[in-house]
Simulated scan of single mutants.
Amino acid sequence: MSEAQEQRTIRCLVGKVGLDGHDRGAHVIARAFRDAGFEVIYSGLHKAPDEIVQATVQEDVDVLGLSILSGAHSTLIPKIMDGLEEYGAKEDTLILVGGIIPEEDRDELLDLGVAHIFGPGASMDEIVEFVQENVPERR
C-alpha cells in the first residue's frame, strides 16, 4: 500500500441489493470494516441496482461490498457493474461480493470486474487485508 493510501481513510459502501432480506453478514462485515478504521456506509435492505450505483458515486467510495444471498447475483450484479461503468466509477472502485455464489457463476462475475468473491466462512481478517492490499489509489 502506498503512503498516500495509508494516510487517508478507506471509504466503503456495504450494499444489500434486491429482495434479499438477510443482512446479518452485511452487518458483520460493516463492523469489521469499521473496526479496521474504514469509514463505512450501509445501504440498508432491498436496494435496487441503480440505488447502489448512485450511492457508490455520490459517496465517492473506494470499496463497494455487495452482500447477496438471494440467488439473483447473475441479474443484479451485472446491472450494478454497467451502472458504475456509465459513471466512470468501475475502475476506481474495488468491488467485492459476499454471500452464496455458486462456483459455476463466479467466473462470470469476476469477468465483469468483481475483484473478489467471499463465501460463507471467510475470515474478517482475510477480507480486511484484501481491501487494504487492493484498494485503488485516489485519482
Rank of each mutant, 00 (worst) to 15 (best):
K90Y: 00
L84V: 12
V131M: 02
S2C: 06
L109Y: 05
V14I: 06
L13E: 02
V14H: 00
S2N: 08
L64M: 07
G15Y: 07
L96P: 06
R31I: 06
G25C: 00
K79H: 05
H46T: 08
R24C: 01
S43E: 06
I77N: 09
I101V: 15
A26R: 07
D62Q: 14
I10Y: 01
I100K: 13
G44H: 06
G15H: 09
P102A: 12
T9C: 11
Q7P: 08
E133F: 03
H73N: 13
H27T: 13
G44E: 02
L64T: 04
L112G: 08
I95V: 12
K47T: 11
A36S: 09
E129R: 15
L45S: 01
I117P: 01
L94T: 11
E3T: 14
C12G: 07
V128F: 01
L64N: 04
F130P: 03
E6G: 06
E6C: 07
H116F: 09
V97M: 07
S123Y: 01
I127D: 00
D50F: 09
R106P: 02
I80L: 13
L66C: 15
D23A: 15
V131R: 07
H46D: 04
L94H: 12
E103R: 14
A72I: 08
D20P: 10
A122E: 05
G113Q: 04
L96Y: 01
G37W: 02
E59Y: 01
G44R: 09
G21R: 08
V97I: 12
V114K: 09
A4G: 05
H116M: 15
I68C: 06
L94W: 05
I41L: 14
P78I: 09
R106Q: 15
P136F: 04
D20E: 11
H116A: 14
E137C: 15
N134T: 08
H116Q: 15
I68K: 08
K90L: 05
L94R: 12
V40H: 08
D125I: 04
G65T: 06
P136W: 02
V14S: 00
T56D: 06
S43K: 09
D125N: 08
G98N: 07
L13T: 02
R106D: 08
R138D: 01
L13K: 07
M124H: 05
V17P: 02
E51W: 08
